[in-house]
């Protein structure tokens, strides 16, 4: 009897859950994401293990993929088309931008299609769905780190010495992942309803890549179009990466500010949109 009472007394401390329809527009409930952070990390760990364990070459893929792209771009654009590279060896020029782009596109792909891929979990388990999107932009950071080391090796080979500015890669990377998250907060819920996103996404990303200064320098864009061109939030980011890694030119503050404003707007709107749509995920997937 006594032990029963004390057990019951202990339980009164337990959490209280309120279940009700449609919470307010601005109730983003980010605290629950924090509460479920362990699940997010374990999903990241699972994806990394599976990714590297399934492939015969394992982690080597993370290196080979951008290396192939760099090789192709170097041959096609650097050698055949004689694209300007602002006085830097073309492979390094292309790689410094591809490093950021490869991470960005992989993060958008993972994060944007993650909700549908985790359909089983969403149908049977409760957790803040946002952690799937978060995990999607965190997982490819490991690939980024490996590729970055390869880039440093290549820079050494070509005799390009990094400066202190290379430390700026870290905040720039953070901005990139926020942009990827913002994009997928919009794409993910739409993909739940319209599975065509999965097929359109590679195409969209390819167009976006050519609309960003990756194979060509920003200096090639005519001055009068530049303002419009910089509305692409990846422009400021890519130029930032080049500036940080190659130590040349100036950080384009206008482009970076445009990126920052766009990211904040997309992220905030995306969070509201995601929360709004989240309620029906389990019914639609």
């Amino acid at each position: 009897m006594n032990s029963n009472l004390s057990a019951a007394a202990q339980r009164t401390v337990g959490p209280v859950t309120e279940i009700r329809p449609g919470k307010g527009l601005l109730d983003l409930d980010l605290r629950s994401v924090w509460q479920y952070r362990e699940l997010m990390w374990i999903l990241v760990g699972r994806d990394l293990k599976v990714m590297y364990r399934q492939a015969a070459l394992g982690a080597a893929w993370a290196v080979l993929q951008p290396l192939f792209a760099v090789a192709i771009f170097t041959v096609v654009f650097g050698i055949f088309a004689r694209m300007s590279s602002d006085g830097v060896p073309y492979p390094i020029f292309a790689f410094s931008a591809l490093l950021a782009w490869t991470y960005f596109s992989e993060a958008v792909r993972r994060s944007g299609t993650g909700l549908v891929n985790e359909g089983d979990l969403i149908r049977k388990i409760y957790f803040p769905r946002l952690i799937i999107s978060l995990a999607g932009v965190i997982t490819p950071l490991v690939d980024f780190a490996i590729t970055f080391i390869v880039l440093l090796g290549m820079m050494f080979w070509y005799g390009v010495t990094p400066t202190w500015q290379i430390l700026m890669v870290v905040p720039l990377l953070a901005v990139t992942s926020l942009l990827a998250l913002a994009i997928s907060l919009w794409l993910g819920p739409i993909n739940v309803r319209y599975r065509d996103i999965k097929h359109t996404l590679p195409f969209l990303l390819q167009v976006w890549m050519y609309a960003s200064p990756i194979i060509y320098p920003l200096s090639m864009i005519p001055e009068r179009w530049k303002a419009w061109y910089c509305l692409n939030p990846m422009v400021g980011i890519i130029e930032g990466f080049r500036w940080a890694i190659l130590g040349k030119g100036n950080l384009d503050l206008t482009a970076i500010s445009v990126s920052a404003v766009l990211i904040v707007a997309l992220l905030f709107g995306g969070l509201i949109f995601f929360r709004r749509m989240e309620r029906s995920f389990a019914d639609l997937i």
Partner: peptide, 16 residues
Amino acid sequence: SRITEPTNGRARINGR
């Protein structure tokens, strides 16, 4: 279990 939201009504759950 909070997997899906109710259309109306409410529930209060006391405990883990």
